[in-house]
Design a protein around this nucleic acid. Structure first.
Length: 221
DNA sequence: CCAGACGTTGTT
DNA sequence: GTCTGG
DNA sequence: CCAGACGTTGTT
DNA sequence: GTCTGG
């Protein structure tokens, strides 16, 4: 699955990579956790825009903004079938920029965190879906999102059985195309899994209050 | 029809 | 055990 | 995902 | 809102 990631590439590089018109000022973050605001890129009102999305999807029909369920991930195998995700996968897909993500491997002595990144780049895209929720009485509006997951690819298989769906640059257009509204039309071009690199990192990443480049340094578990 | 759930992961 | 906060 | 709280009354 | 279960 994907429950923590990092985005530390400079804003102007992110802007160029995704072809955005306006830059959003981002500080490097090595410990992005569910429930916080994250950067998503989506077509909205006919243009490609950066959006701040609360990580943890709140369905539009939800009565409370605090959802009982932790919808931080959506399985690609079933996302078209679930009532909570059906309209979002059809009409509101987004790219979620990342420099890498973390997965935890269960061991005899506990859980060991690993950092997963892509050779040759500090920026790639994870597949996301988003939704707008509005409080009918107060008028409060929250845009939220979930990261789409799939079975582990490449080197990730060694540590975990799930990971985010990645989208190769060649697949950005189709994934974001608002005219693509069916499972058959949606083509998922994932990154070449031979580029995926995995190494163990310090358990400092466990605490979401910790941050900084030391979190992605390789350690001996 | 109405009532009630609506999710994933990992662990048992 | 379960929920909230990060 | 993991870490850390989990409560009320009354007083400052 | 939409799907499943009864």
């Amino acid at each position: 699955m994907c429950g923590r990631f990092a985005l530390y590439e400079p804003s102007d590089i992110i802007q160029d990579h995704f072809g955005l018109d306006d830059a959003s000022e981002l500080v490097p973050n090595y410990n992005i956790a569910p429930g916080t605001g994250i950067l998503g890129i989506a077509y909205y009102e006919n243009s490609l825009v950066p959006m701040f999305l609360k990580w943890g999807l709140i369905p539009h029909w939800s009565k409370a903004k605090q959802t009982q369920y932790k919808m931080i991930n959506a399985r690609v195998e079933t996302v078209w079938d679930k009532s909570s995700f059906r309209s979002a996968i059809r009409y509101r897909r987004c790219l979620i920029p990342a420099s890498g993500f973390y997965e935890w491997k269960k061991t005899d002595s506990g859980k060991q965190p690993y950092f997963i990144s892509v050779s040759g780049t500090n920026i790639f895209a994870m597949a996301g879906i988003w939704e707008t929720w509005e409080d009918k009485s107060s008028g409060e509006v929250i845009d939220s999102c979930a990261i789409v997951t799939t079975e582990a690819q490449g080197a990730v298989k060694e540590i975990h059985d799930r990971m985010p769906v990645t989208i190769d640059r060649s697949g950005y257009k189709n994934w974001l195309d608002p005219m693509v509204q069916t499972r058959d039309q949606l083509k998922i071009y994932q990154l070449d899994h031979s580029l995926i690199t995995v190494w163990p990192v310090s358990p400092k990443v466990n605490n979401p209050r910790n941050n900084g480049p030391e979190l992605i340094q390789q350690v001996t578990p």
